[in-house]
Structure formats: structure tokens, C-alpha cells
């Protein structure tokens, strides 16, 4: 079976700054990968490379067997036209640290925006599906609320519903609970746990070690643009092999 995400020696630099220095990993279908590490270690950048918000400089990144951001013709790579890059992104949902909901649209309008505009789904169908998704994240009564009227946790759950509305085969979470009050973290993690149990493939950048231990199939510890250590989350968290991992975990656990 082709893995959902396959990274081979992925490198990314911004000018002279090398952020990713050869990331190699695989995420199988239905698996949950958690990425942890200090800030500036390249976790978010790697996540953004997966849906081509950042262009990879070296190495190869495949989603469901399809090369991301480039077309391979013989030995040569060709930059992908924006239209095709958009098409690739449709199947990859993304949830951001700061939610990035559209403030001028209600929760329901946020959820149906992409299906109606991008996939040209009929509005009545999109509305029905949108309401269903809001119900799944426990917010059916907030359908008509504007983002500003919702708490951080509620906004993030709407953002998850918005990403799910495109029926993605892969979900990317970029520190989804880092901007939330401690009280509200739980409700977002609960939605993510449910999603994982339903078989969604997920790549999650997080500082929630409890979530990683409980839900992830694989844990990756990154530092300085490289994967320092990876493996079963229980083993890595309980018995880290590298000094750098030990030092980091002793601070956050």
C-alpha cells in the first residue's frame, strides 16, 4: 500500500537559512503522526511543505503517491502551475494555530465556502453537509454565529469542520491548541481524537504530549531541521535515546 505521506530527504531553505535539512519519514494510511520539538526546529515548515504552502528545495515529498509541487518529466522536475497545486491542496485539509476563520462569514458560511466555490458543490448539498459537520464538532447551535462571537476552542472546531468539508484524505494540524486557554484545549483534542479513531490520516504538530502518547502511531522529535528521533510515542516519551530529546522532554513533561 502506498503511504499517505512519503518524505525523502526533504530540504527547505529561506535564502541562506536552512530550515529543513533532509527529512525522511512515512505516514501510512489511517495513521497519526505527531511532530514535537522546540520552536524553530522546522516542524511547521515541514507541515506547510506537505500542502505546498512552502516549496521544497531538495528531496521529494509525495502525498498518496503523488509528487507535491512539481511534475516529473523524465529526469527533470517542472514547477507546477498554480491551478494544479490548488487541485492537490483540495485533498489536504489544514488547521492553523490561529484558526484563520473568515471573520466576515458565519460558522456555517465558513464551512461551505470551499465546497461551493472550489468544488462547485450545490449550495443546498453543501449546507446540509456543513450542518452535519458542525454537529460532529459539537457546534450545531453556533451555525449562524460569526467567529468573533465564538471562543477560541469553538473557533478551532469550526476550522476543523471547514477543513473536513473538502473531504480530505489527509489532515494537517499546525499547533492547533497552542493559542487556546488551557480550559479549551480539551474540547479541540477530543474532536481530533474522534477524527483519528474514524481512520483519518493526520500529521499533527503539537506540544500536547498526552495526546501524542494516546493517539499517535508514530512520534517524531525534530530539532535544528532534522529528525532526531522517531518511533512509537510511548517508547520515545518514556525512554528517549538521544540527549537532545531527553533535555527537551524533561522540560515539557
Amino acid at each position: 500500500m502506498t503511504p499517505m505521506v512519503k518524505a525523502e530527504e526533504v530540504c527547505k531553505s529561506f535564502g541562506a537559512l536552512h530550515v529543513l535539512k533532509g527529512i525522511t519519514l512515512e505516514v501510512g494510511k489511517g495513521e497519526v503522526l505527531c511532530m514535537v520539538g522546540p520552536s524553530g526546529s522546522g516542524k511547521s515548515t515541514f507541515l506547510r511543505c506537505i500542502n505546498h504552502l512552502e516549496q521544497v528545495n531538495a528531496g521529494r515529498l509525495y502525498v498518496d503517491g503523488e509528487l507535491i509541487g512539481y511534475r516529473e518529466r523524465g529526469a527533470k522536475l517542472h514547477e507546477m502551475p498554480p491551478r494544479e497545486a490548488s487541485k492537490q491542496r483540495r485533498d489536504i485539509g489544514m488547521v492553523f494555530q490561529h484558526f484563520n476563520l473568515f471573520p466576515h462569514r458565519t460558522a456555517l458560511q465558513n464551512v461551505i465556502e470551499a465546497p461551493v466555490q472550489v468544488k462547485r458543490v450545490k449550495k443546498s448539498e453543501a449546507l446540509a453537509r456543513g450542518k452535519d459537520l458542525l454537529k460532529q464538532v459539537g457546534l450545531s447551535e453556533k451555525a449562524e454565529a460569526y467567529p468573533a462571537q465564538l471562543s477560541g476552542g469553538q473557533q478551532q472546531r469550526v476550522a476543523i469542520a471547514r477543513a473536513l468539508a473538502m473531504n480530505p484524505k489527509l489532515m494537517l494540524f499546525d499547533e492547533p491548541t497552542s493559542a487556546l486557554d488551557p480550559e479549551l484545549v480539551g474540547e479541540v483534542l477530543a474532536v481530533m481524537k474522534k477524527l483519528a479513531s474514524e481512520g483519518m490520516t493526520m500529521v499533527v504538530v503539537t506540544h500536547e504530549m498526552g495526546f501524542a502518547r494516546e493517539v499517535a502511531n508514530q512520534l517524531v522529535f525534530m530539532d535544528g531541521g532534522v529528525v532526531v528521533e522517531s518511533g512509537n510515542p510511548r517508547e520515545v516519551l518514556a525512554n528517549p535515546q538521544h540527549e537532545r530529546t531527553k533535555a527537551f522532554l524533561s522540560k515539557v513533561l
Binding site: 500542502n51 504552502l53 498554480p82 491551478r83 490548488s86 487541485k87 491542496r89 483540495r90 489536504i92 485539509g93 489544514m94 492553523f96 490561529h98 484563520n100 476563520l101 473568515f102 471573520p103 466576515h104 465556502e113 470551499a114 466555490q117 472550489v118 468544488k119 476550522a159 471547514r162 477543513a163 473538502m166
Partner: peptide, 27 residues
């Protein structure tokens, strides 16, 4: 308009023009 807005639109598969028209200009 914050950059996150166009980023979220891009991540949803919207084109640059659609992002401008639907997300950025109204805000």
C-alpha cells in the same frame, strides 16, 4: 488583511483570484 486569511484560502484549494475576491477584498 492578515496573511493567515489568504493562507487559509490557499490551503482550501482556492486560486489567487478567488482568494482576493472572496476572502481579502470583502475584509
Amino acid at each position: 488583511v492578515p496573511e493567515g486569511q489568504s493562507e487559509a484560502s490557499t490551503a482550501l484549494g482556492m486560486s489567487w483570484g478567488m482568494t482576493m475576491r472572496r476572502t481579502v477584498l470583502p475584509q
